[in-house]
């Protein structure tokens, strides 16, 4: 128990100090409270919005857009990555294009997405999809390419068929790296969505933050920002848990 408390202390002390610092800067008049409200007034604003349910509407919508783009991206990038990792020739042909795509700022493309998909829901999920593709695709390719050839040889020596080889050897061996890619994609998803919602939306957390700033509801704005942080941390935490569960064996590999 004491060990648990100690670990909790180690993990939370910096965060707690950060909020204490923030609160005292505002409380003791070191910073204009208009620019930086106290933590308590921000919490109050958040509580009010939770009571009216306004905050949840924005959260739900943002999660829906992110989730959709993210899931479709994973469903496309993982199988594609497996193919590209396995068929070296395919990867040689596609890699240059892939490098161009992933190094082009996703937000630079957003106007194109609005042009093509309009201002509705589709363009937001589509831009999330685009941004999520690359981390998971690249990690899947590298995961499949990195499977120990000895493991493949050993399975092949038993006369394994290619589909079973994928099922029993390639996929389990590449899974840890695929999971890392998926986690990176999820992080990207939230970041892109918020920006996209700021640029053109009438609901969602990004829109809410932007709108709160426009109408000078500064505590609301901060409440929105902290909500996004919490969501991001939570999603990452869950995916790390999942990753560790799936790839427990990988942590002990030398």
């Amino acid at each position: 128990m004491t060990a648990k408390l100690k670990s909790l202390y180690t993990k939370s002390i910096a965060v707690v100090l950060f909020f204490v610092l923030w609160d005292s800067l505002a409380r003791f008049g070191l910073v204009d409270t208009f620019l930086l409200p106290t933590v308590t007034s921000m919490a109050e604003a958040a509580w009010e919005m939770m009571k009216t349910g306004e905050l949840f509407i924005h959260i739900a919508l943002s999660l829906k857009r992110t989730g959709l783009g993210f899931l479709v991206a994973i469903c496309v990038s993982v199988p594609l990555g497996i193919l590209m990792g396995w068929f070296q020739k395919l990867e040689e042909y596609l890699d240059p294009l892939l490098q161009i795509f992933r190094n082009t700022s996703v937000l630079a493309l957003f106007p194109v997405f609005i042009l093509v998909f309009g201002l509705g829901e589709v363009s937001k999920s589509a831009i999330v999809f685009w941004g999520c593709m690359w981390p998971s695709l690249l990690n899947t390719i590298s995961g499949v390419k990195g499977v120990d050839p000895l493991l493949i040889k050993s399975a092949r020596s038993m006369g394994i068929s290619v589909p079973i080889l994928f099922q029993k050897v390639i996929l389990p061996a590449a899974l840890p790296e695929i999971m890392t890619g998926i986690r990176l994609s999820a992080g990207v998803a939230v970041i892109i969505l918020v920006a996209a919602e700021m640029l053109g939306a009438t609901r969602g957390l990004g829109y809410f933050i932007f709108y709160a700033q426009q109408k000078y509801a500064i505590p609301d704005m901060y409440a929105g920002i902290v909500t996004i942080s919490i969501l991001g941390v939570l999603i990452n935490f869950l995916l790390v848990k999942l990753e560790n569960h799936i790839a427990a064996w990988k942590r002990y590999q030398v």
Binding site: L150, L151, S157, M158, P172, W249, K250
Partner: peptide, 28 residues
């Protein structure tokens, strides 16, 4: 081609690290 009438043992063991010992033995 390869078949299960021959068993191959390599220097590098080539055990599947995500499988337990018993599951490794069961592979074939």
């Amino acid at each position: 081609g390869p078949a299960l009438n021959r068993g191959f043992v390599m220097q590098g063991y080539a055990l599947y690290p995500w499988r337990t010992v018993i599951k490794n033995i069961q592979f074939g």
